[in-house]
Protein backbone atom coordinates (compact mmCIF):
# COMPACT_ATOMS: atom_id res chain seq x y z
CA UNK A 1 0.00 0.00 0.00
CA UNK A 2 1.35 3.42 -0.94
CA UNK A 3 0.31 6.63 0.72
CA UNK A 4 1.06 10.21 -0.18
CA UNK A 5 3.20 11.68 2.55
CA UNK A 6 3.46 15.23 3.82
CA UNK A 7 6.58 15.49 5.99
CA UNK A 8 6.44 19.19 6.86
CA UNK A 9 9.20 21.68 7.55
CA UNK A 10 10.33 20.42 10.93
CA UNK A 11 10.71 16.79 9.95
CA UNK A 12 13.27 17.77 7.37
CA UNK A 13 15.38 19.57 9.91
CA UNK A 14 15.10 19.36 13.68
CA UNK A 15 12.59 16.55 13.72
CA UNK A 16 14.48 14.13 11.47
CA UNK A 17 14.14 11.23 13.85
CA UNK A 18 10.38 11.35 13.62
CA UNK A 19 10.61 11.15 9.84
CA UNK A 20 13.46 8.69 9.26
CA UNK A 21 12.23 6.03 11.63
CA UNK A 22 8.66 6.49 10.52
CA UNK A 23 9.59 5.78 6.93
CA UNK A 24 11.89 2.88 7.74
CA UNK A 25 9.27 1.27 9.94
CA UNK A 26 6.64 1.71 7.25
CA UNK A 27 8.71 -0.41 4.88
CA UNK A 28 9.12 -3.08 7.53
CA UNK A 29 5.35 -3.08 8.01
CA UNK A 30 4.63 -3.30 4.31
CA UNK A 31 3.49 0.19 3.42
CA UNK A 32 5.23 2.97 1.60
CA UNK A 33 5.22 6.69 2.26
CA UNK A 34 5.64 8.53 -0.99
CA UNK A 35 6.64 12.09 -0.33
CA UNK A 36 4.63 14.65 -2.29
CA UNK A 37 6.74 16.10 -5.10
CA UNK A 38 6.15 19.61 -4.03
CA UNK A 39 4.89 20.62 -0.70
CA UNK A 40 4.99 23.80 1.29
CA UNK A 41 5.00 24.28 5.01
CA UNK A 42 1.50 23.96 6.43
CA UNK A 43 1.99 27.03 8.61
CA UNK A 44 2.11 25.07 11.89
CA UNK A 45 -1.03 26.66 13.32
CA UNK A 46 -4.55 26.17 12.06
CA UNK A 47 -5.95 29.50 10.86
CA UNK A 48 -8.99 29.83 13.08
CA UNK A 49 -10.27 33.03 11.51
CA UNK A 50 -12.69 32.41 8.67
CA UNK A 51 -11.23 35.20 6.56
CA UNK A 52 -7.70 33.75 6.54
CA UNK A 53 -7.49 32.24 3.08
CA UNK A 54 -3.85 32.47 2.01
CA UNK A 55 -2.75 30.54 5.09
CA UNK A 56 -4.97 27.63 4.06
CA UNK A 57 -3.58 27.25 0.56
CA UNK A 58 -0.52 25.09 1.19
CA UNK A 59 -2.72 22.51 2.90
CA UNK A 60 -5.20 22.55 0.04
CA UNK A 61 -2.41 22.09 -2.50
CA UNK A 62 -1.09 19.07 -0.61
CA UNK A 63 -4.57 17.61 -0.29
CA UNK A 64 -5.22 18.02 -3.98
CA UNK A 65 -1.88 16.51 -4.96
CA UNK A 66 -2.66 13.40 -2.93
CA UNK A 67 -6.12 13.31 -4.47
CA UNK A 68 -4.68 13.46 -7.97
CA UNK A 69 -2.39 10.57 -7.14
CA UNK A 70 -5.44 8.66 -5.91
CA UNK A 71 -3.85 8.23 -2.51
CA UNK A 72 -4.66 8.96 1.08
CA UNK A 73 -2.51 11.65 2.67
CA UNK A 74 -0.40 10.64 5.67
CA UNK A 75 1.30 12.99 8.11
CA UNK A 76 3.59 12.30 11.04
CA UNK A 77 3.94 15.64 12.75
CA UNK A 78 0.93 16.31 14.91
CA UNK A 79 0.86 19.99 13.97
CA UNK A 80 0.78 19.29 10.23
CA UNK A 81 -1.85 16.71 10.86
CA UNK A 82 -3.96 19.13 12.84
CA UNK A 83 -3.73 21.90 10.27
CA UNK A 84 -4.28 19.77 7.17
CA UNK A 85 -7.15 17.77 8.61
CA UNK A 86 -8.99 20.89 9.74
CA UNK A 87 -8.43 22.76 6.50
CA UNK A 88 -9.75 19.72 4.66
CA UNK A 89 -12.83 19.87 6.82
CA UNK A 90 -13.27 23.55 6.03
CA UNK A 91 -13.19 22.63 2.37
CA UNK A 92 -15.91 20.05 3.00
CA UNK A 93 -18.18 22.16 5.13
CA UNK A 94 -17.59 25.87 4.62
CA UNK A 95 -18.89 27.10 1.31
CA UNK A 96 -17.37 30.56 1.62
CA UNK A 97 -13.90 29.25 2.35
CA UNK A 98 -14.18 26.68 -0.42
CA UNK A 99 -15.24 29.30 -2.88
CA UNK A 100 -12.53 31.78 -1.95
CA UNK A 101 -9.80 29.14 -2.01
CA UNK A 102 -10.95 27.96 -5.41
CA UNK A 103 -10.83 31.43 -6.83
CA UNK A 104 -7.49 32.13 -5.23
CA UNK A 105 -5.95 29.04 -6.80
CA UNK A 106 -7.87 29.40 -10.06
CA UNK A 107 -9.05 25.81 -9.80
CA UNK A 108 -10.47 24.18 -12.90
CA UNK A 109 -11.75 21.16 -11.00
CA UNK A 110 -13.35 22.04 -7.70
CA UNK A 111 -11.96 20.54 -4.53
CA UNK A 112 -14.34 19.84 -1.67
CA UNK A 113 -12.25 17.87 0.79
CA UNK A 114 -12.42 14.48 -0.93
CA UNK A 115 -8.94 13.38 0.17
CA UNK A 116 -8.64 11.31 3.33
CA UNK A 117 -6.09 12.60 5.84
CA UNK A 118 -4.52 10.03 8.12
CA UNK A 119 -2.01 10.34 10.88
CA UNK A 120 0.65 7.63 10.87
CA UNK A 121 -0.80 6.30 14.10
CA UNK A 122 -4.17 5.97 12.40
CA UNK A 123 -2.52 3.96 9.65
CA UNK A 124 -1.09 1.65 12.32
CA UNK A 125 -4.42 1.31 14.09
CA UNK A 126 -6.92 1.34 11.23
CA UNK A 127 -5.04 0.01 8.23
CA UNK A 128 -2.31 -2.26 9.61
CA UNK A 129 -3.91 -3.12 12.95
CA UNK A 130 -2.07 -3.23 16.27
CA UNK A 131 -2.36 -7.03 16.36
CA UNK A 132 -0.51 -7.30 13.08
CA UNK A 133 2.05 -4.81 14.27
CA UNK A 134 2.62 -6.93 17.34
CA UNK A 135 3.41 -9.94 15.20
CA UNK A 136 6.09 -8.02 13.33
CA UNK A 137 7.89 -6.98 16.49
CA UNK A 138 11.29 -8.65 16.79
CA UNK A 139 12.64 -6.74 19.80
CA UNK A 140 9.73 -6.33 22.19
CA UNK A 141 10.44 -3.49 24.61
CA UNK A 142 9.61 -5.74 27.52
CA UNK A 143 9.60 -4.18 30.95
CA UNK A 144 9.78 -0.56 29.81
CA UNK A 145 7.21 1.70 31.41
CA UNK A 146 6.24 4.29 28.88
CA UNK A 147 3.91 7.24 29.25
CA UNK A 148 2.10 8.45 26.14
CA UNK A 149 2.15 12.20 25.77
CA UNK A 150 -0.69 13.20 23.46
CA UNK A 151 -0.71 16.94 23.90
CA UNK A 152 -3.41 18.95 22.16
CA UNK A 153 -3.20 18.83 18.46
CA UNK A 154 -3.85 15.19 17.72
CA UNK A 155 -6.98 15.12 19.83
CA UNK A 156 -8.78 18.44 19.84
CA UNK A 157 -11.31 19.44 18.74
CA UNK A 158 -12.49 15.84 18.57
CA UNK A 159 -15.47 16.79 16.41
CA UNK A 160 -13.00 17.80 13.71
CA UNK A 161 -10.00 15.57 14.35
CA UNK A 162 -11.94 12.33 14.85
CA UNK A 163 -8.71 10.81 16.09
CA UNK A 164 -9.55 9.30 19.44
CA UNK A 165 -11.52 10.01 22.59
CA UNK A 166 -10.19 13.46 23.57
CA UNK A 167 -10.44 12.89 27.32
CA UNK A 168 -9.50 9.27 27.49
CA UNK A 169 -7.47 8.39 24.43
CA UNK A 170 -6.06 4.89 23.98
CA UNK A 171 -4.29 4.83 20.62
CA UNK A 172 -0.79 5.49 21.96
CA UNK A 173 -1.30 3.12 24.88
CA UNK A 174 -2.39 0.41 22.44
CA UNK A 175 0.68 1.21 20.39
CA UNK A 176 2.94 0.89 23.43
CA UNK A 177 1.38 -2.48 24.24
CA UNK A 178 1.86 -3.65 20.65
CA UNK A 179 5.59 -2.99 20.82
CA UNK A 180 5.82 -5.01 23.99
CA UNK A 181 6.15 -2.28 26.61
CA UNK A 182 3.87 -1.28 29.44
CA UNK A 183 1.79 1.89 29.01
CA UNK A 184 1.54 4.22 31.98
CA UNK A 185 -1.67 6.23 32.08
CA UNK A 186 -1.40 9.64 33.76
CA UNK A 187 -3.82 12.53 33.93
CA UNK A 188 -1.81 15.20 32.15
CA UNK A 189 -1.10 13.23 29.02
CA UNK A 190 -3.62 15.32 27.08
CA UNK A 191 -2.92 18.68 28.71
CA UNK A 192 -1.05 21.28 26.71
CA UNK A 193 2.73 21.44 27.30
CA UNK A 194 2.77 25.19 26.61
CA UNK A 195 5.10 24.76 23.63
CA UNK A 196 3.87 27.77 21.69
CA UNK A 197 4.87 30.02 24.54
CA UNK A 198 8.47 28.86 24.72
CA UNK A 199 9.42 31.84 22.58
CA UNK A 200 7.43 34.25 24.72
CA UNK A 201 8.09 32.94 28.17
CA UNK A 202 10.32 30.05 29.12
CA UNK A 203 9.12 30.28 32.69
CA UNK A 204 5.57 29.68 31.67
CA UNK A 205 6.51 26.76 29.43
CA UNK A 206 8.58 25.31 32.25
CA UNK A 207 5.66 25.45 34.64
CA UNK A 208 3.50 23.43 32.27
CA UNK A 209 6.23 20.91 31.52
CA UNK A 210 7.13 20.36 35.16
CA UNK A 211 3.52 19.64 36.03
CA UNK A 212 3.33 17.05 33.25
CA UNK A 213 6.62 15.41 34.24
CA UNK A 214 5.74 15.29 37.90
CA UNK A 215 2.43 13.66 37.13
CA UNK A 216 3.91 11.12 34.70
CA UNK A 217 6.68 10.18 37.11
CA UNK A 218 4.29 9.82 40.05
CA UNK A 219 2.29 7.36 37.97
CA UNK A 220 5.39 5.29 37.30
CA UNK A 221 6.46 6.35 33.82
CA UNK A 222 10.17 6.03 33.04
CA UNK A 223 10.05 7.65 29.64
CA UNK A 224 7.57 9.49 27.41
CA UNK A 225 6.71 9.31 23.74
CA UNK A 226 5.18 11.95 21.49
CA UNK A 227 4.33 12.66 17.86
CA UNK A 228 5.06 16.38 18.04
CA UNK A 229 8.47 18.02 17.49
CA UNK A 230 7.47 21.08 19.47
CA UNK A 231 6.30 18.98 22.42
CA UNK A 232 9.53 17.01 22.25
CA UNK A 233 11.58 20.16 22.29
CA UNK A 234 9.60 21.74 25.05
CA UNK A 235 9.40 18.64 27.23
CA UNK A 236 13.14 18.12 26.84
CA UNK A 237 14.55 21.64 27.02
CA UNK A 238 12.17 23.26 29.45
CA UNK A 239 11.94 20.55 32.08
CA UNK A 240 13.56 21.13 35.43
CA UNK A 241 14.04 17.42 36.00
CA UNK A 242 12.44 15.61 33.12
CA UNK A 243 12.01 12.05 31.97
CA UNK A 244 13.57 11.10 28.64
CA UNK A 245 11.28 11.85 25.68
CA UNK A 246 11.37 10.19 22.26
CA UNK A 247 9.28 10.12 19.12
CA UNK A 248 6.98 7.13 18.90
CA UNK A 249 8.62 6.21 15.59
CA UNK A 250 12.00 5.78 17.28
CA UNK A 251 10.57 3.13 19.56
CA UNK A 252 8.67 1.58 16.72
CA UNK A 253 11.87 1.21 14.71
CA UNK A 254 13.63 -0.24 17.71
CA UNK A 255 10.90 -2.83 18.24
CA UNK A 256 10.81 -3.75 14.55
CA UNK A 257 14.55 -4.20 14.48
CA UNK A 258 15.08 -1.65 11.72
CA UNK A 259 17.38 0.44 13.87
CA UNK A 260 20.10 -2.21 13.98
CA UNK A 261 19.81 -2.93 10.29
CA UNK A 262 20.65 0.65 9.48
CA UNK A 263 23.50 0.99 11.90
Amino acid sequence: MTYSYFPGCTLKTKGKDLDIWGRASAEALGFHLQELDQWQCCGAVYPMAKDEIATRLSSVRALMAAGEAGQELVTLCSACHHVIKRVNRDMQTDETIRDRVSRYLGLQTPYAGETTVLHYLEVLRDRIGFDNLKQKVVNPLTGRKIGAYYGCMLLRPASEMGFDNPENPTILEDFIRAIGAEPVVYARRNECCGGYCTIKSKDYARKQVDAIMENARACGAQELITACPLCLYNLTENATDGLPVAYFTQLLAEALGVKEEQK
Binding site: C9, A44, V45, A79, Y196, T198, P229, Y233
Partner: peptide, 18 residues
Protein backbone atom coordinates in the same frame (compact mmCIF):
# COMPACT_ATOMS: atom_id res chain seq x y z
CA UNK B 1 18.40 35.61 19.50
CA UNK B 2 15.33 33.52 20.22
CA UNK B 3 16.83 30.51 18.54
CA UNK B 4 18.69 27.74 20.18
CA UNK B 5 20.19 24.66 18.69
CA UNK B 6 17.16 22.43 19.05
CA UNK B 7 14.24 24.78 18.57
CA UNK B 8 12.02 23.27 15.88
CA UNK B 9 11.09 25.33 12.77
CA UNK B 10 7.52 24.75 13.72
CA UNK B 11 7.88 27.04 16.73
CA UNK B 12 9.16 29.89 14.62
CA UNK B 13 6.58 29.45 11.90
CA UNK B 14 3.86 29.31 14.52
CA UNK B 15 5.14 32.42 16.23
CA UNK B 16 5.11 34.31 12.96
CA UNK B 17 1.57 33.24 12.29
CA UNK B 18 0.44 34.16 15.75
Amino acid sequence: HLLDENLPQQAITAAFRK
